Simulated assay, not measured.
Amino acid sequence: MADNAANLSGIARAELDTEYAGTRLGRQELSGELLEDVEVALWQGWMLEVEGFCVHREHIPDLNRIVVAVDPATKSHENADLTAFTVAGRGIPQATAYGDNRPRGYVLHAEQKRRTPTAAMRRAAELYHQYEADCVVIEANNGGEYLPALLEQVDPSVPWRIVHATRGKRARAAPVAHLYEQARINHVGPARGFAELEEQMTTFVGLGEAEESPDLLDSVVWALWDLFLEHQTHAGPGDDQRLSGRR
């Protein structure tokens, strides 16, 4: 687009910039960059660029379950990890291609920011109410088991579920990437709102201990596990456990 800007109206250029600037698709179509896939990455670029992948909120079905997933940092100093939040829901479109009536996932919101633990739980409660969610899912490795107690102090009306990572990041993320490969997941809203998430997806390999932790990706994985994959597992020593009575 940059090379042919003279052939577009100012309104059209502004709309395209607003929708796609800073995104993977925008880098290709607006700036003309040639983006090659990371060979062993779980997410390939085409999964995020298929027609209809990004949809507007008014075009999605009623959602029968919505969760807020939190991948928290347990420290808050200036070099600490970011705390990531994903809001995602599950629903069945009225019109499905080829008679596929399986539920689809809709990622409604994704953000990451450095926050104190209390501020993170306050933000989780805000998102829970904003999106009328059913539950907050909190990843609680590295000593984060105290976070639900903070959430209850911030807002005792918010139901929560705690999960623990018992497998490597790649093994945990692979089934979620498969949902994207099946075109069963959509991102809802302007594409630029998911630019950081999609960058993490298309560059995450997960084959080495030295690889930086992808916080947004982790929170999306937890959200979609809850919506689609948790029922496929059975409680046991190697599975995530729910705190007694909490859902």
Rank of each mutant, 00 (worst) to 15 (best):
A174L: 15
G206E: 12
C135F: 00
R192I: 12
G193Y: 04
I185T: 08
Q153G: 05
K169T: 07
R161K: 14
A165Y: 00
L216T: 05
G208S: 15
S219G: 05
T203Q: 13
Y146A: 13
W160A: 03
A210G: 06
L147K: 06
L147Y: 05
V137H: 03
K169E: 07
H129V: 09
Q130Y: 00
V137Q: 04
Y128I: 02
H187I: 08
V163D: 04
C135H: 00
D215L: 05
E139L: 03
L217R: 02
V136M: 04
L150A: 10
G208L: 11
N186G: 01
H187W: 01
V137F: 04
G143C: 12
G206F: 09
R192K: 14
I162N: 02
P190V: 00
A191I: 01
A171T: 15
H178R: 15
E199G: 05
E126K: 13
G168F: 06
T203M: 08
P159I: 10
G193W: 02
A149C: 00
D218C: 10
G144M: 09
S219P: 03
V176R: 07
L147R: 06
F194M: 13
L207Q: 15
Q130V: 01
T202I: 14
H164S: 15
E198G: 03
E152T: 10
Q200P: 10
T203C: 12
Y180F: 15
E211Y: 03
A125M: 02
Q200S: 10
G189T: 15
A149Y: 01
D134M: 07
A171N: 07
H164E: 09
N141L: 06
F204E: 06
Y146W: 10
M201G: 07
Q182N: 11
V188S: 09
Y131G: 05
W160P: 01
R167P: 01
A210E: 13
E181I: 00
M201F: 12
L207M: 13
G206V: 07
T202F: 04
C135A: 09
A174V: 07
Y146P: 07
H129S: 11
F204S: 05
Y131N: 08
G144R: 03
S219M: 04
